[in-house]
Simulated assay, not measured.
Amino acid sequence: MNGAQTVDGVLVQWGERLFYPSNRIIKTPSTPRLETLTRRKAAVIRGRIVATVVRRAPQVMVKVTGGGRGMNAIAAHFRYISKNGRLQIEDDRELTYRGKESMHDLVEQWRLGGARIPEEGPRREAFNIMLSMPHGTSPMAVQQAARAFAKIELAGHRYVMVLHDHQANPHVHLSVRATGMDGKRLNPRKTDLHRWRETFAERLRELGIEAEASRQATRGEGRRSQELWRLKAKEDGRLSNQVPAPKGGDAYAKSRSNALVAWANIFDALRKSDRQEDRALASGIARFLQDLTYARQLARNPQRDVVPRDRNRPMPQPEPMQRAQSDRGMER
C-alpha cells in the first residue's frame, strides 16, 4: 500500500468517527479492489475537513420542537406556523393552502385521513420539526432543501411545512403525522436527528449553499445548545444575550476526548503526506484545534485526563500543534 492509500485509509477510518453517526463507522478497507471506494470516501472526508476547519461553513440546525397529543394541539400548531392562514402551507403532495377556509380543510384531512386522530389523547400524534440556517442564507434554498429532506426522511408520513423568512434566521416548520401510512410510528432518536442534519446539509450543498452538520464534539464546542424558547425570546428582544452554561460530566469529556484523538490521527497522517495540499490542511487543523473550546479548557487544566479510558496510547494532540507552527509556511 503506497503513501496516498495509507493517508486515505486513515482519513476514512477516523473521519467516519468525526463526521458520521456511530452506526456508520467503517473499518479501513484493505483489499485492493476497494481502493477506489476508499479514495472516494477519503475525498468526501477531505471536503468535510476543509469546510469545518478552513472555511468554517455554517452549521444547519434540525430540532424536534414538540408535538401534538390530539387534533386540537395539531390544529393550533398549524395556525401558529401559518400565522392563522396568512402564510402558505404545503403538504407532502406539494399541494398548498392559504387562508382560514383552506386551513380548516387541511385539519379535517388530518383528523379523518387514515386512523382517526382524537381531539385530545395520551400519545403524541404529530412531531413538530424545525430546520434552520443562519442569517444571510437564501430562504428559497432553505425551503427547497427542506422539501427534499422531507421526501427522503419522512416518506410514508403525512406532513406539512411552512417557510418563515421574516425572522433573523430563515427556517422551515414541519409538522409530521406520527403514524405512517403503513401503520408504523415515527420515533426520532439522537442518531436519527444527526442523520436528519446530514440529509438537510447535503440537500443544501446540492443547491450550492455551503452547509455543515458536524457534531458539537467534532467542533470542540463546550456550551449547551439553547432551548428554542430562549432563541425566540432573544429574537423578539424579550431576553438578554445570556451565554449558556458550559457542559460537563464524564460523557461530555469522553466525547470531546475521542474527537481530539480522531483529529490528532488525521493531522498526523496529513502532516506526513506527500501532497502539499494535505500538509497545508494539517496546518489548518492545528490552528482549528487551538481554537476549540475544549482545547482551551485543557490548556487551563493540563492535569485533566483527556484520554478515554478505553484507549491504550496517549493522545498526540499537543505535539502536532507545536509542529504545525513550522508547517504554516507551506500554505503561503
Rank of each mutant, 00 (worst) to 15 (best):
H173C: 00
R33V: 06
E101G: 05
K184W: 01
V7E: 02
F200K: 06
S175I: 10
L186M: 07
Y294L: 03
R300G: 14
E319R: 14
P318N: 01
Q322Y: 10
P170T: 03
S214G: 13
Q109A: 10
A324S: 00
A126M: 08
E108T: 09
D165N: 03
E16P: 00
R332K: 06
P246E: 00
F127H: 15
S22E: 12
A126I: 01
Q143G: 01
V307E: 10
V44T: 09
R56T: 04
E319L: 14
R300N: 10
N241V: 00
R39I: 08
A217N: 05
R116D: 04
I26E: 05
M61V: 15
G183N: 00
L289A: 02
E212Y: 01
H194L: 09
A269Q: 10
Q59Y: 07
G67M: 13
I25F: 12
H164W: 03
G156Y: 08
Q290W: 12
H166L: 07
N258D: 05
E221Y: 12
R313V: 11
H135C: 12
P316V: 01
E331I: 15
E125Q: 15
S138Y: 00
T65I: 09
Q167V: 11
L106N: 00
D268Y: 09
P246D: 00
M330H: 04
Y80F: 08
H104T: 14
Q226V: 08
V54E: 14
R328H: 12
H157F: 03
F19E: 06
K190L: 07
R311N: 11
R48G: 05
Q216H: 09
L131I: 07
D192H: 08
V10H: 04
R40M: 11
R189S: 06
W196I: 15
V60L: 13
R224T: 11
G248N: 00
Q317K: 09
E153T: 04
G284F: 15
K151R: 12
V60W: 09
N128Q: 07
V12A: 12
R69T: 11
R147V: 01
V53G: 05
Y252N: 06
G67V: 13
D305A: 14
P139N: 07
Q297P: 02
